[in-house]
Amino acid sequence: MTDYFYLIPIAIGLGLCGLAAFLWSLQSGQYDDLQGAAERILHQDDVPLSH
């Protein structure tokens, strides 16, 4: 049992990563216009790849 205790900090660390990612996305305004984002993806202009 105690052999697997190293999994606990990994689990919590992953959770913290998720939390940090959420807070970052909130901070960078990704939730400001959810409806707009859903529509924009359908109307994005095609940009040719530059080689």
Binding site: I12, G15, L16, G18, L19, F22, L23, L26
Partner: peptide, 13 residues
């Protein structure tokens, strides 16, 4: 929302 996210993380763990 930030407070909610933090408490959600803590509560689940």
């Amino acid at each position: 929302i930030r407070a909610l996210a933090v408490s959600g993380f803590a509560a689940s763990n």
